[in-house]
């Protein structure tokens, strides 16, 4: 039993290593995907800060930094599911499911790998935000905890992406649906403005939007230097657990 768990954990780590090696060989996607959030911070953030639209918010650039981190990371996580479709079309998935590791560890490994890939935006966005005057805490524990919880949250979006990739069947449909949900997820959350000022329906959507809670975690850790994130973590955990369980359940479907 112990050996079985050990092998499952080693295989999950191997999949993370695989993702990191791929990133090292070809960092272009990460660099290309960093352009948009940098513009959100350095153009949108700077301009909106001057206009002073949201009077309740003191420093707007600082306020939107966690939101932009999430926007950028979520985009990458949500696009990650396509890799599973590619791997099914090739023989990689067939090969993986005939290896001695449990099928669930294939999914968990890939979800974690996707989360780590997505979280690379954390550093890029933080640096660009600090460069234009955002006030981010310097406490390394908060910074590391923020990173870990970002990976955790992105795991949920990676699972969601895998579920969509499996259900949509074709790449075109998948890309279409991803395009359709990423922006609403971003705008109907607390990433760019506080929930209090939203109109009714959007407010309710923002409350059930998992992105809101991950942004809240980062905002508390990185800006307010507060560690009162337990409630947010519970909500994110429910999101990650539900999507992961569904992704594991329907892995067989993608193979067959």
């Amino acid at each position: 039993m112990y050996k079985q768990y050990k092998n499952a954990i080693l295989s999950i780590l191997a999949m993370i290593e695989m993702e990191l090696r791929r990133l090292r060989h070809d960092p272009l996607e990460i660099i290309a995907r960093a352009i948009q959030p940098i513009l959100w911070i350095t153009v949108f953030g700077v301009v909106m800060a001057r206009v002073r639209v949201f009077l309740s918010i003191g420093d707007y650039i600082t306020f939107i930094t966690p939101g932009v981190i999430l926007q950028s990371s979520t985009f990458i996580a949500l696009a990650y599911g396509i890799s599973l479709v590619f791997e099914r079309d090739l023989g990689i998935l067939k090969k993986l499911i005939t290896s001695p590791i449990p099928r669930s560890s294939i999914v968990i490994g890939r979800i974690l790998a996707g989360g780590i890939r997505a979280s690379t935006q954390y550093i890029i966005v933080l640096i660009s935000a600090i460069a234009v005057g955002a006030k981010i805490v310097s406490n390394p524990i908060n910074l590391l905890l923020g990173y870990a919880l970002l990976v955790y949250g992105c795991m949920g979006f990676t699972s969601l992406s895998m579920i969509l990739a499996i259900t949509m069947k074709t790449r075109e449909r998948f890309m279409g649906i991803i395009g359709a949900i990423t922006m609403p997820l971003f705008f109907a959350s607390n990433a760019l403005y506080p929930i209090d000022i939203m109109p009714g329906a959007i407010k309710y959507f923002a409350i059930v939007n998992p992105l809101t809670y991950i942004v809240d975690i980062l905002r508390k850790l990185l800006i307010y230097n507060s560690c009162e994130v337990f409630n947010d973590i519970i909500v994110v955990t429910i999101f990650v657990a539900c999507t992961t369980v569904v992704a594991i359940k329907i892995l067989n479907k993608i193979v067959e």
Binding site: L10, M15, E17, R21, K95
Partner: peptide, 24 residues
């Protein structure tokens, strides 16, 4: 399998290394 079962954006050695870890 009939179809390619390698990660084309990794080296040959890396493919073997990752699979060797997956295979325990």
């Amino acid at each position: 399998p009939q179809e390619m079962s390698l990660w084309s954006d990794l080296t040959g050695y890396e493919n073997m290394l990752i699979y060797s870890k997956i295979y325990g």
